[in-house]
């Protein structure tokens, strides 16, 4: 696949003796939405952090547009501008208003004109229904609103790819929906995304490709999400998906 936007080749990530990702390869085409699922500790969040060079890597390489993504290199902040990332929580800057949160990086880092960025931010906020909150501080917003603002903040940098790292995991159930709706509309508009999530029905709805990871490896990969969720071909994926279905077991006392 030569039209790959992002190429991960033989990636290895370890913390000292403990290997988190071993020999992982994945390539992402422009406009593709990949959902990564797997049990906690399987390395899926670490993978996203490596793609944004928030972690050093111990082997292999990551290429975005053919350029290497490597921590502690001089141009890393340039490369990161092409990658938008949203975390689980607490990623908005508490001392800045919603509008300032969104405009800070485009104005200070990309040196774009403030009025132009503000207009764009206002249009995006309008779309997610938060324009009237633009002068509020993050502490005045609900968890779901914060995450939607974080998505807009990343979008305003015009990234080529978005990384979403369990962005609904810290939310109350009734707020999950509003965030997922925003992500879905992004996917529909052609954004390239790598999504780590535990929301299985959402994964099924949004994914072009599902990647199931365990122990730092890709165990199963499927271009047919419907099929994967109905009938995974590996035993491990089957067991994992089973844990999301609650069936009262027999309790012996």
């Amino acid at each position: 696949m030569d039209d790959a936007l992002l190429k991960i080749e033989h990636l290895r990530k370890a913390y000292g003796e403990h290997t988190v990702i071993r020999d992982l390869s994945l390539s992402v085409r422009k406009g593709e939405v990949i959902v990564i699922i797997g049990p906690s500790g399987c390395g899926k969040s670490t993978l996203l952090r490596c793609v944004n060079a928030l972690e050093s890597i111990q082997g292999g390489q990551i290429l975005l547009d053919g350029e290497p993504v490597l921590k502690n290199t001089k141009d890393i902040s340039l490369v990161r501008q092409k990658i938008g990332m949203v975390f689980q929580s607490y990623d908005l800057f508490p001392h800045k208003t919603v509008m300032e949160n969104i405009t800070l990086a485009p104005v200070k880092v990309q040196k774009r004109s403030k009025t132009e960025v503000q207009e764009e931010a206002a249009a995006l906020l309008e779309k997610i229904g938060l324009l009237d909150r633009r002068n509020d501080y993050p502490r005045q917003l609900s968890g779901g609103q914060k995450q939607r603002v974080a998505i807009v903040r990343a979008l305003c940098m015009h990234p080529e790819i978005m990384l979403l790292d369990e962005i609904t995991a810290a939310l109350d159930p009734e707020m999950v929906r509003e965030v997922l709706d925003v992500v879905l509309s992004l996917a529909r508009s052609g954004s390239t995304m790598l999504i780590v999530t535990h929301e299985m029905s959402f994964a099924k709805a949004i994914a072009d490709r599902v990647v199931f990871m365990e122990n730092g490896l890709i165990v199963e990969e499927s271009y047919e999400p419907e099929e994967f969720f109905a009938q995974p071909s590996t035993e491990r994926a089957k067991q994992f998906l089973q844990t999301f279905v609650y069936e009262p077991g027999e309790i012996t006392d």
Binding site: N52, L54, L78, R80, Q81, A105, M157
Partner: peptide, 10 residues
Amino acid sequence: IQYDSARALG
């Protein structure tokens, strides 16, 4: 996460 999210913005 404040360091990370700032770095992630380039």
